[in-house]
Simulated assay, not measured.
Amino acid sequence: MEQVIIDLLDQRAATASICPSDAARTAYGGDDDGWRALMEPARRAAWRLVSAGEVEVTQAGRPVTEETARGPVRIRRAGRR
């Protein structure tokens, strides 16, 4: 899942972000709602990438921590604004 997130970010403009659901849908690859089962794995992968310094998880454009994040989040490359 980490590689899916990195690949999606590489496909976007330098300042772009993705939703964890983008990674879940891409990893699932199906047309039905089966991707929803991959939402939590996508979120966990994002936090692992945060720990590795690869990405930031944001809300309202500002980085958040796993402890403070509540509700929908976005993922972007670390150090991008």
Rank of each mutant, 00 (worst) to 15 (best):
R36W: 00
S51Q: 13
V4C: 13
A13N: 11
A60Y: 12
T65Q: 03
G79P: 01
G79H: 01
E67K: 14
V55G: 14
A42F: 03
M1Y: 00
A27I: 06
V57T: 04
V50E: 08
R70L: 05
A42C: 09
E54L: 11
A37T: 13
G53T: 04
P63D: 03
D32K: 12
E66Y: 07
A60T: 04
E40W: 01
V4T: 15
D33N: 11
R80H: 02
A60R: 15
W35A: 03
A27W: 03
E56R: 07
A14H: 11
A14R: 14
L49H: 05
M1D: 00
A78D: 08
E2P: 01
A69F: 00
V4L: 07
I18M: 10
T65G: 14
R74Q: 12
T26C: 09
V4R: 10
R43N: 14
D10C: 07
P20Y: 08
I5W: 11
A42L: 07
A37R: 15
P20E: 15
T15P: 01
D10F: 06
D31T: 14
Y28P: 14
D32V: 14
G79F: 00
I5V: 15
D22A: 05
S21F: 02
V55Y: 15
L38T: 04
V57M: 06
A69N: 02
R76M: 04
A60I: 03
